[in-house]
Design a protein around this nucleic acid. Structure first.
Lengths: 194, 194
DNA sequence: AACCATAACTTTACAGTGTCAAGTTTGTTT
DNA sequence: AAACAAACTTGACACTGTAAAGTTATGGTT
């Protein structure tokens, strides 16, 4: 009941995830260690082991949280956009790119091999939710003649690749077109008329 | 002149790079350590320090080598394709995807933050060469109304994103369309008539 | 109220990592 | 033959993740 220092932290699991995100954003993936997280939360270096089955499991939990922020930014940006399908899609993609730019390390983490190779139910749920947003926004358009979902695959690939290449500074190869807006590279698709 | 064990290895630098690639392909990025590389080459754990300024510098050298393989696969695949522009482009992109699939860890490395944040002349040269291939293949088509290079930006983003998402098994979300061929998502562009 | 089982956390220890400083061997130059 | 620089080794250090064993708090039962 009192707020004095207790032997039991009491809320350690979420605190570790939150501290992990902080360190991640400040120092990048390579600067993130279990022991640093433990110090920041004010707990012994072995404490995380009682809440996460190894470092990767903590990374996965952080990644799940990352997917939530990811979804949130995409949804918010889409909702702010005008009502027509193309504006909605561009808004969503701007959210995608915004997340990649503002949460560089987190973006790297959620698509990292470490995380992908560690099956986790909650992570699966959170990542599905993010891609569901993309899917349903693509569904505002007529399906491609090539198949129901090839629009979504194309858009997703396009915006993801664009985000990666921008993060890698590869776009500087294209001189001063560094900020090529989405409008230029998003292909024309026909909105549904329903 | 003799082949007996010498104190001096004599060819250590390239040997370290080569061993590094081997371990990388076998165990992934997280399994790659300087000491493992040293052991595999049959040299002391501190030997690499005399040829590379720290681990990252060795990773960068490996990445440069990776970009060479990358270019080689794209070029080979493009040259095997039919003569028309679209076939050439699809061939090149198949090389791109083939590299990402067959050299998963190397693909991850060459686009990693560690490597990108370490300026290196040779790496710059090798990566430029890879993207030059993509650029010149896109130049077989009429430039987009949005600008000279927006075709290349679009194609590059598209194929890179597609490669990443496939590597991350995210395509399973799209049921059995896992192997959606490039033809379906590559947009139509008008070949030059020269 | 006393007790105890269990969860939460600490302490200690260990193997593996990258890096540095100091030594040894080899090859080359003079 | 001597001197010197390059190539490599040895030993040490701080940091990492993980495991085992010990300590402290919590909640429930009687």
């Amino acid at each position: 009941m009192t707020t004095q220092t207790r032997h039991h932290h009491g809320n350690l699991r979420p605190a570790l995830i939150s501290a992990g995100i902080d360190i991640l954003e400040a120092e990048g993936i390579s600067g993130l260690s279990l022991r640093k997280i433990a110090v920041r939360v004010g707990v012994s270096h072995a404490a995380p082991a009682h809440h996460f089955d190894g470092k990767i499991a903590l990374l996965v939990a952080i990644a799940a949280e990352g997917f939530l922020i990811f979804s949130q930014m995409m949804e918010e940006s889409r909702d702010k956009a005008a009502a027509d399908p193309r504006s909605k899609l561009i808004g969503l993609c701007q959210g995608y790119l915004g997340f990649a730019a503002q949460h560089e390390a987190l973006f790297e983490l959620i698509f990292s091999t470490d995380v992908k190779n560690h099956a986790d139910e909650n992570l699966e749920k959170c990542s599905m939710q993010a891609f569901q947003l993309l899917q349903e926004t693509c569904d505002l358009f007529e399906p491609s003649p090539h198949g129901n979902r090839s629009n979504a695959i194309m858009i997703w690939s396009l915006v993801h690749g664009y985000a990666c290449l921008r993060a890698n500074n590869k776009m500087v190869l294209f001189e001063n077109e560094t900020n090529t807006p989405l409008e230029m590279i998003l292909p024309q698709m026909t909105p549904k008329t329903t």
